[in-house]
Every structure is written in C-alpha cells, then in structure tokens.
Design a protein around this nucleic acid. Structure first.
Lengths: 197, 197
DNA sequence: TGTACATCAGTGAACGCGCGTTCACTGATGTAC
DNA sequence: TGTACATCAGTGAACGCGCGTTCACTGATGTAC
C-alpha cells in the first residue's frame, strides 16, 4: 500500500518530531527504532524508507530541534519591548522548573549534550552547528542591548559573554536534572542561583 | 579456586577503579559487564560476587569518583599559598584541554551528569551527594577568601556563588566535550571563555 | 483521457548480535573440632 | 597444631531479551504510452 508523496513527507516529519521529543527525554540510546516508529503511528520496518540509520535520524533530530528553538529565541529577541532585557527574560524561561521537567520540547543544547559527545560524529556535527547558531544570536543580542544602552561593546567581549551565558545555562540545567528526582530542593536551588546571575 | 579475603577486596577495588574510568569516558550504557571485568583482569561471571547489579556498581563508582576528586579539591584549597586565589587555580585546572580530553580521571560532575539524570535512582542519589559536597567545599572557600581579603560574605551569597561556579564549570566542560571532535577550535573557545570568568 | 505496468511506503517476521544475569563447576581458603 | 569439611571467588557456557537492520510481500500511487 504505497502512499502519496505528501503522506510520505508527513510521516517523515512525524518521525523526526516524535523522535525529537523522545531523544531529548530519554537520550538516543534510550529509545529503540520500534518505540519511535510506534510513537509516530507506524511499524518499525518502514524506518529505513526514510533514514539510512538511527544515527542519521539522530543527527537530523538534532538539526531540527536546534532550528526550532533558535527560531523561537530570535523571535523573542526581535519582539523584545525593552522594558526588561530580552536576555534576562531568556534566563528566566530557560532556568525554569517547567523547562527542567519537560525536556521534550526544550533546548537541545542541554538535553542532547552528552549524545553529541558520545554518539556518532554526525550528531556532533549537527550539535556543534546548533551551538554556533546560539552563540551568534546571543552575542548579537548582547551587542544590541549595549548599543541601546548607549554603551560600547567589543564584539569579542560580546562573544565571550555569549559563551559564558550558554555554559552557565546548560550547566545549571543538566545539574538540576541530574539531581531532580532524589534532591528536588537542591535542583530548585541550582535553577534559582542561575537565574540570579 | 577460592581467593583470600585480601585478594577479593583487591579485585573489588580494581573493578570499581576501572569501571570508574570507563563509565566516565563512555557512560554507564557504553560499557558492558564483560568489558569492565576484562579491564579489571577478570571474567564476567564473577561480577555478581561483588555487586548485586550493574546499577549498584554505577552508584558505587559515582560515590568513589566524587570522594577522590573532592579530596583532591579540599587538599588544593588547604595547601593554597594565597599568591593567587585557589578558586582561580581550580578554574584553570578544571577548564583545561587535558581535563576535557581525559574524562577518565576527571570530575564526575561533568562526566556522569547525564547518567545521574537518566539511569537508576541509586546513581542519582550518589551523584546528588557528591554535588552537595562540592558546593559545601566551594562555598567554604569563597568565605575563606573573602575573610582573608578583609571582606564580609553572607553565607547564602557564598553558597549562591558556589552553585553558579559549579554550573559554569560543568556547563563549559560538557559543551566543550560535545563539540570537541568536529569543532576543536569552538571547543577551545568555550574553555577559554570559562577561564576568563 | 484511459490503460497497463513499474515503483515503492508500509507491514511484520526474521536475523545476528551484544547485553545483563544465572548457573554448574573447580579448587583453594577458612573454620570447626 | 593437624585434619576434615564447608565455604565461596572465579570460570565460562548458557539463558532470555531487546536492539538495529534486512527482507519478502502487499497493494495503492505514479508514470509511460
């Protein structure tokens, strides 16, 4: 029962979408092909009509996740009204209990960081591109806010701050998740301290 | 061929030691019982004479790794000569290329952070205790340095700084590792920016 | 536009492999007398 | 202190399971004429 091109494309999107949610929650190793195809409403055998391997899917998922969150980030910066800096707003959203407890729709920098380290290079490639995108966007916003405040900001310094901000956010998030089930108050404390940055 | 108690204890120590190195490098899921027993000079069947399960070993490894690195940290703080703050020295050591490239002897906060998140609660328990130990030690050193400098430091503020320092270090390290193979210069940049903190 | 045929997305069984765990066995160690 | 027996650490085969991947098959879609 061959499907139309539109149906096939929709199925492919569904696979990437649900794999994206599952990989971010359980890690690439924590989700089987059968799991993820079932969650997309299909059976496991058809997987290879869409992707050459699980690693290739993971790389695509990484790309797609970064693309979406980067888009949201850029939109938030563009729509910023200046009453409160957009970067402060980002920090509060990022280091929230909601984000910690729902990795599936959240930032791939934090949820896929170890998969990028330990899995295939394809995934690391997509991950590194995503991180670079984040840094560029963050550095631009640092510069924009400085300019708006009438200050001068060396581009290298803006970049430096972007790197430290991302490191701090990712570190706080992975730590908060790593103690979340057994030490919830420590986990909250880590998020709180990060927000007071 | 039953072994003496001393031999058995030595074997057990060897297992914890080599599992510690392997888990930190490849993750708990990345190392099989057979692998790790072989690396300790034994065959896989004997594993269960020492540990009730792989998760139990992982928790023990987590405890042992934190204990050792915490001991080193405390010793470094005690032996500090004050010519350069001990915390600055820690930051330089921690965010070095050597530490990034050799996770096996390094800080478990960074290398086991995702295992603590996604694996069994036993591991998370040991991990959370280790993090708590780090934070206590770091906060005490913040207070000590402030006192030495003739300043007043609110304990809550010292603790806050400790949390942010650890988040920043762990975040920079996991990010640097996550892009290290495909984007070595970005990886170096992340470590450099963290050290300039 | 209609027809005949090739293509190919999805299905579900199967393959081969590695994993965590169990088990019967061996023989040196520890212990009761 | 010496002896006889129980204990138990290590060995390596085996078990059961789930995984990534392959494959023969089905039948609707796409296409050549």
């Amino acid at each position: 029962m061959r499907l139309s091109k539109e149906d096939k494309a929709r199925n492919r999107d569904n696979i990437v979408e649900s794999a994206g949610r599952m990989f971010r929650t359980r890690g690439v190793d924590g989700v089987g092909i059968a799991d993820l195809m079932k969650s997309a409403g299909l059976t496991h055998g058809g997987f290879y009509n869409h992707f050459p391997s699980k690693d290739a899917l993971a790389a695509e998922v990484c790309r797609a996740s970064f693309e979406r969150t980067l888009g949201r980030l850029a939109a938030a910066f563009d729509g910023s009204d200046g009453s409160r800096t957009a970067l402060k707003h980002l920090l509060d959203d990022y280091l929230s209990a909601e984000h910690r407890d729902a990795p599936d729709g959240g930032c791939p920098s934090a949820s896929l960081v170890v998969d990028a380290w330990r899995q295939d290079d394809q995934i690391q490639e997509a991950y590194a591109e995503g991180v670079e995108g984040y840094l560029t966007t963050l550095a631009a916003e640092f510069s924009r806010e400085a300019t708006r405040g009438g200050e001068e900001l060396d581009p290298a310094e803006a970049r430096d701050r972007a790197v430290r901000l991302l490191s701090g956010m990712v570190g706080a998030m992975v730590l908060a998740r790593a103690v979340g089930r057994v030490a919830p108050s420590l986990s909250d404390e880590i998020l709180d301290a990060g927000r007071r940055r």
